[in-house]
Amino acid sequence: MNLVKAVTQPLAGSSQALTERDVDWLLVQRVQAGEVAAFDELVIKYRERIYSVVYNLTSNKEDSFDLSQEAFIKAFQSIARFRGKSSFFTWLYRIAVNTTLSFLKKNRHRRFLSYENITEEASSSEVLDVLAAKTSTEKPTLIKELQHKLNEAMQTLSVKHRTVLVLFEIDNLSHQAIADIMNCSVGTVRSRLHYAKKQLQSELQDLLD
């Protein structure tokens, strides 16, 4: 993040503040000019979000590591062809989502789940206290059970519905951004999102009652 700040600070200080998209475009142009290190800044900037999308789609941390790496390498290999018609962020997300969807399609019959750790803040949330009191279970055990149920419920969704749900609910992208990434209309995104939430809710009914 420090590297990104170092790049953006002098630019932000100029007469006209640059948008996120402009900053990315400048970095892309530097990479296209042969400055390989500039791509590192883009990786550092987006690695957490890309990893998060991939992880929430696969529910497997080892696969997510490999797929995120693959997505960044693919982006690096084809960055010379990037003309800036869409934002770099949309383009990169599209690569990551497509790479993951291909992987899921190829390996649909041999899937297993492996989870990331839940952060400290989430562990001390009110929701967990309520649930722990309700089920009279130890908190660490409850967290593991919840995590497992959540991830399994996510995996019951179709890949398209899961992608929309992850991008909207977890990554907080707008409907338009999701439509750009998934190459479909905003209406389709809304419809898929509605269906996905409904299905997930029915899958997690026993927790929500």
Partner: peptide
Amino acid sequence: LLDLKRAEKP
């Protein structure tokens, strides 16, 4: 519940 999913981070 989805907050928990968001909290899954390396």
